[in-house]
C-alpha cells in the first residue's frame, strides 16, 4: 500500500484512521518528491527474442520525467512509442534496464494504481452508461457506491459533460467519448496519466478544442502526463518536453524543452510557437537523413 493513496481512499478516511495516517504522512515525506515522476534507465525491449522474426522495439532508452510535467513522445510509426508507454505502465516488462514510476518498479506502480491510461480508441464499455464507465476503476478498487457516484459526478464536471451522465457511449461524439475516457483515467486521481494517441481519430477542430481542455485538466489536477502523438503542432502546444524518437531500433534521439508559458488560443499564432515547431520538425527530419 502506498501512503499517498490513503488520503484519496474514502474507505480509509471514513474509518477515522487519522492517527495512523499522520505516521504514514511522515514516512511518505521521503518519497513525496518522487510522486508523479518516471525514470527509465538503459531500457531495451526485444519482442520474440528467440525467433527469426525478433523485433528490437526499443534500445537504450534513458528518460527522466519530473512531477507535474507534460511530456510528448513523437516519432514515425513503429518507432516504439506505444511500447515505451506500455513499459511505463508495467503492462510489459523491459528486456534490459529498469523503469521506475513514483520511485518504485513500474509493475508495482501498476498494482498500486498510480496511473490512469487512455487509448486512441476511447475503449468505453458500450453496455455501461457514461457515469458507470467512469465508475469502473473505482468499482475494481472496491469503492462504496456513494463515493463512486460522487467522484463520477466530479469527473464529469471536470470534463464538462455533466448532462451526459446517463447516456450510453454510442450516443456521444468521438470527442465526447474521448473526454469520458480521460475522466475515467483520472477518476481515482492518479499521479500520472498515460495517453496513447488519444486525439488521433478526431477532426482538427475537435482536436484543438480537446487540447485546450486537456491543458485545463492538467493545470487543475497537477497530474504528470505522458502523451503520444503524430502531430508536431499538437506536441508543441501541449508539452513542456518533447521526446523525438527514431525507429529501428527505437531510441530517443532528441529531447526538446518547450517554454511557451500559459497556453491560450493565441499561442498557436505566436512567433515562438512556430519556432518550436520548426525545432521539432528539424529534429524529426535529421533522423531521416542519417
Amino acid at each position: 500500500m502506498t501512503a499517498e493513496r490513503a488520503t484519496d481512499n474514502p474507505q480509509v478516511s471514513e474509518e477515522g484512521l487519522q492517527d495512523s495516517m499522520d505516521t504514514l504522512q511522515d514516512s511518505m515525506e521521503s518519497r513525496q518528491h518522487l510522486l508523479g515522476s518516471v525514470a527509465a534507465q538503459g531500457v531495451s525491449k526485444v519482442f520474440l527474442p528467440n525467433s527469426t522474426s525478433k523485433v528490437t522495439a526499443l534500445e537504450d532508452i534513458n528518460l527522466h520525467i519530473s512531477p507535474g510535467s507534460f511530456t510528448t513522445l513523437i516519432g514515425p510509426s513503429g518507432c516504439g512509442k506505444s511500447t515505451l508507454l506500455r513499459l511505463v505502465a508495467g503492462l510489459i516488462h523491459p528486456t534490459q534496464g529498469v523503469v521506475q514510476v513514483n520511485g518504485k518498479p513500474a509493475d508495482q506502480a501498476r498494482k498500486d494504481r498510480d496511473y490512469g491510461m487512455a487509448f486512441q480508441t476511447a475503449s468505453l464499455f458500450d453496455w455501461r452508461t457514461v457515469r458507470k464507465n467512469i465508475e469502473l476503476p473505482l468499482e475494481l478498487m472496491g469503492w462504496r457506491r456513494g463515493a463512486r457516484q460522487q467522484r463520477a459526478a466530479e469527473m464529469l464536471e471536470l470534463v464538462q459533460l455533466p448532462e451526459f451522465a446517463d447516456s450510453y457511449p454510442s450516443e456521444l461524439s468521438g470527442g465526447m467519448q474521448q473526454r469520458v475516457a480521460i475522466a475515467r483515467a483520472l477518476a481515482f486521481k492518479p499521479t500520472l496519466l498515460l495517453m496513447d494517441e488519444p486525439f488521433g481519430a478526431l477532426d482538427e477542430m475537435t482536436r484543438e478544442h480537446m487540447q485546450a481542455e486537456l491543458l485545463h485538466i492538467w493545470e487543475e489536477t497537477n497530474t504528470t502526463i505522458i502523451f503520444i502523438t503524430h502531430s508536431i503542432p499538437e506536441a508543441v502546444f501541449l508539452s513542456t518536453n518533447v521526446c523525438v524518437m527514431t525507429p529501428r531500433p527505437g531510441r530517443i534521439s532528441t529531447q526538446i524543452e518547450i517554454d511557451l508559458g500559459k497556453r491560450t488560443d493565441d499561442t498557436r499564432e505566436r512567433e515562438d510557437f512556430f519556432a518550436s515547431i520548426v525545432k521539432v520538425r528539424e529534429a524529426l527530419r535529421s533522423q531521416e537523413s542519417t
Binding site: R86, A89, L91, R110, K111, D112, R113, Y115, G116, M117, F119, Q120, T121, S123, F125, W127, R128, L136, P137, E139, L140, M141
Partner: peptide, 23 residues
C-alpha cells in the same frame, strides 16, 4: 485496448471476466 485497460487497473482474472468478458 479493453483488455489492456483492465490490466492497467491491475484487475484480476475474475474481475476481467465479470466486468468485461461476460457483458
Amino acid at each position: 485496448d479493453s483488455k489492456e485497460l483492465m490490466d492497467s487497473y491491475a484487475a484480476g482474472w475474475w474481475q476481467t471476466l465479470w466486468k468485461l468478458r461476460l457483458p
